[in-house]
Design a protein around this nucleic acid. Structure first.
Lengths: 241, 241
DNA sequence: CGCCAACTTGATGGCTGTCAAGTCAGGTGG
DNA sequence: CCACCTGACTTGACAGCCATCAAGTTGGCG
């Protein structure tokens, strides 16, 4: 039973992700205004782009379900994954600056997003101060997140990077009501490597090492974390590079 | 003749940086509103902090004159410079997310900033749409910049990183009316290294190499770029790592 | 003039990239 | 149902880039 794209109206007021997303802390009448603002939902099939670098910027996207990566490309073909995004997170903020997107957003599984026209968002956030503030926090959080990733890329060694990655995934799955111990990775070793500034072989070796040392158990993309405190220690107690 | 801090009122309408800063594109009456919003100027002496990680967030800062770095610290003492900021750029955006700053901002030379209370900024940007939009662009630009740095840290080799750094500095000095060929670096080799994810010795070696190859001439912190197109080529034509 | 931080340069080593071969899982078609 | 194929992953051997350690130089400043 295919659903025609664009016919569904979203309803932030009904969405179980509203505690993670832009509606956080809004009153009921304010939520109704938000419901009107959010245009349509859009379904994105696995391995297709939500947007591409260079596309004109029209709005931002709240992930309703699914899993995305964003990446940037250099002219010579090298690319870097800049983030993995899951339900409740916002995509497209990179486009505000120049009115064009500066990275690619690709679905790593069949996904669905809420389309939020940017002109409308700015308009409504002039009226609803809680929305204005939430949006500013979302952007700031992205900046803080990026700083953390710079720290990872600039100062950590391979195993620390992977430990940080696993703990971050674990924490985000938990925030969404899933197990923090056991989860399924949607991305390949190569994508993890690109995100962490490592080659896929190095990622694979680090996974094996963590398994041998009893921190995790790995079965392809299925991960079970056995020793969360142990992984945390790896982050701080390794010899500086 | 010492000037008492806090007594001077700023005047965005008179500032020669307004084309780079938040006032960009505002009408005269709007500029006057902005003048009222901006609280005071604050002078920051070389090697002192504008704010520290953990400080409560109160507002953002527009650099009126001078040069800053921001850095983040890990518990084990490792740190990473996340950016160098110059006149016309905005500091403090990291604090919006949690109401506390998540990095340190340190002046690399005697500097002066305009203090912009955040509550006031949100209030005024509800009324002045051009200001609202500018502010969103400033935040988005920071996100895009961070993605570029991730790409640098994740995929480039040492000499590419330094070439990218020099070209970036050159471009930003030029945008401020200074020479794009010749400038004075305010930061140490160690700070450059931290920013680029390299050790200071590697930075030093790369500087020497560039000089030997005729791309630049280096005299301590004084840099003269001889071959800008040559440096650009280094960015794209080096063998992938 | 002497001191110190910043910088340069050299020698060595290790982490991770590179290359290569093999394994595994899932999907397709006969 | 099974053989086959392909992409994803694992593992090993080797090498190179950059970190590390060390010594020496430079420049600024009291």
């Amino acid at each position: 039973m295919p659903i025609t794209i664009g016919h569904l109206r979203t309803a932030c007021s009904q969405c179980n992700l509203r505690e993670l997303c832009l509606p956080y802390g809004l009153s009921n009448p304010e939520l109704e205004l938000l419901d009107e603002m959010v245009g349509t939902r859009r379904k994105i099939k696995r391995h297709t782009n939500l947007y591409r670098s260079g596309d004109p910027f029209e709005g931002i996207y709240a992930i309703r379900a699914g899993f995305f990566k964003t990446d940037v490309l250099l002219e010579d073909g090298r690319d870097q994954v800049t983030g993995f995004q899951m339900a409740g997170e916002i995509l497209g903020l990179d486009g505000i600056s120049t009115e064009h997107h500066s990275c690619n957003a690709v679905a790593l599984e069949d996904s669905e997003v809420c389309v939020i026209g940017f002109a409308k968002l700015e308009e409504l956030s002039r009226e609803v101060t809680a929305l204005q503030h939430n949006f500013h926090k979302v952007m700031s959080r992205e900046i803080v997140r990026d700083h953390g990733l710079m720290m990872l890329l600039g100062t950590m060694r391979a195993e620390e990077r992977l430990a940080a990655f696993l703990l971050n995934m674990s924490q985000r799955f938990m925030a969404r009501g899933y197990s923090q111990q056991e989860f399924h990775l949607r991305m390949t070793r190569e994508e993890i490597g690109s995100y962490l500034g490592l080659k896929l072989e190095t990622v694979s070796r680090a996974f094996s090492k963590f398994q041998d040392d009893g921190y995790i158990s790995v079965q392809q993309k299925h991960i079970r974390i056995i020793d969360i405190p142990g992984l945390r220690k790896l982050l701080n107690h390794q010899a500086p590079r």
